[in-house]
Write a protein that binds this DNA or RNA. Sequence first.
DNA 1: TTGTAGGCGTTATCAG
DNA 2: CTGATAACGCCTACAA
Lengths: 316, 316
Amino acid sequence: MQNYPSIGKATIKAVKKLAVDRGYRLNSIAASLRKRETNNIGMLVPWINRPFISSLISGAEAAARAAGYNVLISQSHDSHDNEIDNVKAFFESRICGLIVSLAMETKDYEHFDRLIENGTPIVFVDRIPEHLDVHKVIIDNYAAAYKATQHLIEQGCRRIAHFGGALHQTIYKERRRGYEDALKKHDLPIDEEIIFHGDVLSADEGLKMTAHLLNLPSPLDGIFSANDTAAVNAIQYAKSVGVSIPADLAVIGFNNDPICLIIDPPLSSVGHPAVDMVRIAVQQVLRIKKSEDEVIAQTITLKTKVVIRTSTLRKG
Amino acid sequence: MQNYPSIGKATIKAVKKLAVDRGYRLNSIAASLRKRETNNIGMLVPWINRPFISSLISGAEAAARAAGYNVLISQSHDSHDNEIDNVKAFFESRICGLIVSLAMETKDYEHFDRLIENGTPIVFVDRIPEHLDVHKVIIDNYAAAYKATQHLIEQGCRRIAHFGGALHQTIYKERRRGYEDALKKHDLPIDEEIIFHGDVLSADEGLKMTAHLLNLPSPLDGIFSANDTAAVNAIQYAKSVGVSIPADLAVIGFNNDPICLIIDPPLSSVGHPAVDMVRIAVQQVLRIKKSEDEVIAQTITLKTKVVIRTSTLRKG
DNA sequence: TTGTAGGCGTTATCAG
DNA sequence: CTGATAACGCCTACAA
């Protein structure tokens, strides 16, 4: 085979094909070095092991892989310092795009500057920096909270407490605003005494807030919680002290986590389109990356739906 | 400043420091190309958005990042074909190590061969290939199932059903073996009629198996389920048809997912040391990688503890 | 000790 | 349009 004089194109092709069939694999590292960009999309979230966020990650992984990209995960544990470290690590590892949901603590956003200056596409999802001119994919938290609160009012609730998160986070500010506006709209008073803003809205916080509320002189008849974890623990505590759900106290949560169907009675909640949200975020990252010139920062707002279950059904 | 003749070492250091302070960053891609290996550990799991697995991922991310590595995630969705594709993608992206928990469907393991030949460290966790001589981190499924079943027997159960997963997966085979041996040990009969092996042990499967069981002529008094999802749905169905838990039917699950504390009554379960498991797996990957010569494949077995809650407490 | 040349495997560029 | 060549930035090895 060695001395054949003229090697035809067909042969060359066959050789190449063979090379591929044998273990040849394109070295994407060399390609990255030469092209000065990787195939890795970073994803920075507060926690990995929470139902809403693990759905975000699951969706991101699927969307990214389908487009030929990897997803690098890191978690801030809701700490601002961790977030800074993780962003730096992503910057140094030269991710080609970043999807972020902010740590509860985060109030300033300078740690993203280098990445932004560098031209790396960043898309914020869910927990976003309100006043920064960046790409965002969010839900209409105001409308969702308004609808959830209104639903409680329609079910006959007249004194509704609210469990929120850190107020500097837009999503919690907006949820509170929606809650307050729904009360106002129905001529119900806003009472600071029954509005809480937890540090992380944990199960434990939910329990403590509920214990406090149920000890107040004027009785509650509703709770709108900004997550399901706190709402579920509110139900558990209330039941444990003989408060009947929803007859005495109607409770609605947020996110529509799987636990909504486990708790008794099943928990009404605001459905969160996590998978749609992150699929769009991945698309945005890739679109921004591909486009030659600067893409104007845009905010994409997704609709939500209140999912009504027994925990709020006091009528028909 | 320009014409200073002799530039001292201090100055040079200062210059270097400045370079770092300005945007200089080590290019890990160039380093990877040169060293012929990346800093990315692949992680292949059936699903991302399940409590047990999202804890695995969370632990892996933390352990890997602490050691200076990234984690690349992909999910097989319990499909063998997806698993093959994902392993191939990892191979081509030149991960420096891989942590795998097998897809429910997977019965053969040839798709890992190229990675193994290539010398890439692979550590299997939880759902492992039984007869392959590879690195594994597992729990003692046999002992866990034995203890869980024995606990039911001690609580007075005499006719205990079992919900398992695909029998070609060692973990489910071992859990069944532990269940059967505990029955035998206490001179209880093994009845194939009340032993099920679901495709994925979903909520829906749990419900259907329970409905079937409760329609059998001879009544059950216990269920040992190989996961919590099916166990929780068993409880919900049983309650819905007036079967009292645990008085009529004691139920114990597996994994100790957060839903164990949400369901009423709280679900007894086998605690799964997911975070320890994956932390060890990351350590193993790095250890194998560093060691010059071939490391003998070893299996690390972690202990489990039965977490007893109301769903099985029929005595004292 | 300190300094420098070469090559990792691509891709972009430029010459033919 | 095809084909050769340099450069991406780091690490290793060898020379001074």
